Simulated assay, not measured.
Amino acid sequence: MTELFYDLHVHSCLSPCGDENMTPANIAGMAALKGLELVALTDHNSCRNCPAFLAAARAQGIVGIPGMELTTSEEVHAVCLFPKLEQAMDFDLFVYEQLLKVKNRPEIFGKQQIYDENDSVCGEEPCLLIHASRLSFEGLWEQVSSFGGVMFPAHIDKNSNSLIANLGFIPPDSSFQTAEIKDMKKLRDLKCENPYLERCRIICNSDAHYLEHISERLWSLPVEERSPEAAVDALRRGLAGL
C-alpha cells in the first residue's frame, strides 16, 4: 500500500468557467510544482481535454485520471472517473447525447477550448457544457460502472449543485462509497445529519478553475499501486478498501 497526494477535481479551459490559462499542460505542470502525484481532469460534462492532459501528466511523472464533472437532471454535480482513457471517451459520447444542445456564447459564459498533446488549441466545443444532462442521479453509479468507472457526489457541503442541497437528503439506496466535501471542518455536522456518510471514504478536492487554486500537497489516497486503476478501485471500495 502506498499513499498518493491527490487532487481529483480540476477543470481545464474546456469548462466555460475555467480560466484560459488552465490548459492541460499548465495543469500538469502546476500540479507537479505543488508536489501532487495523482490528478484527475474533470471538465463539465466532457472528457475531450483528457487525451492531452494524460500526455502532459505522464511527462510530469504524475498519475493522471480521465474524468468529468457530470451535471445530473436534478442539477447535482457528480465526479466520474475512469481508469482508462478509452472508457472515459466512450462515456463522453454517451453523456453528449444526453445534453441539451444550446449554443455556447463565449462572450457570456467563456470559451470551451479543446487542446492537443502539444498544448495548442485544436478545436472549440460549440454547445454549452454547463447545462444539466438528462441523466438522473438515481442509477448514475450503475451507469458509470458499466463504462468501468466510479462516481462520487461533488462538494456535498455546498449550498448549490450538491446532492444534499438539491435533493435535500442522501437517498438511502445509494451505492457510492466515496464523497467529496470542500471544507473538512463541516464533516462532523454532515455525518451527524447524514449517517450514510459514516460508510464513505471522504475526500477533499480543489474544484480548481484557476491554476493557483489547484490543491497543495495536503490530502493523500491509499492505493495498492501507483496507477489509475488502483486509484479508481480505492474510490470504488471506499472505507472497505482500508
Rank of each mutant, 00 (worst) to 15 (best):
M1C: 05
E3M: 15
E3L: 15
L4D: 04
F5I: 11
D7S: 08
H9R: 06
V10S: 05
C17W: 14
E20N: 11
P24G: 05
P24E: 07
P24A: 13
A25C: 11
A28K: 07
M30G: 01
A31N: 06
A32I: 01
A32V: 03
L33F: 06
L36W: 13
T42A: 15
H44D: 09
H44Y: 12
C47L: 03
N49E: 10
A55I: 10
A55N: 13
R58T: 14
I62F: 04
I62V: 13
G64K: 07
I65Q: 09
P66Q: 12
T71M: 12
T72I: 03
E75N: 13
V76P: 12
H77Y: 11
A78E: 02
C80M: 02
F82W: 12
K84M: 04
L85H: 11
A88F: 04
A88P: 03
F91H: 00
Q98A: 14
V102F: 13
P106K: 10
P106H: 03
Y115M: 14
D116P: 07
N118C: 13
H131V: 13
S133W: 01
W141D: 00
V144N: 00
G148K: 05
G149Q: 05
P153A: 07
H155W: 08
D157S: 08
N159C: 05
S160W: 10
S162F: 13
S162I: 08
L163Y: 05
L167R: 10
F169S: 12
I170P: 03
D173T: 07
D173A: 14
S175R: 05
Q177P: 00
K182N: 06
M184Y: 08
K185F: 09
L190G: 02
C192A: 14
E193Q: 15
E198T: 02
R201C: 13
A208H: 09
H209I: 06
H213Q: 15
L218I: 12
S220Y: 15
L221H: 05
V223D: 04
V223H: 02
E224L: 12
R226F: 01
P228W: 09
A230C: 08
A230S: 15
V232N: 06
A234D: 06
A234E: 08
R237C: 12
G238V: 09
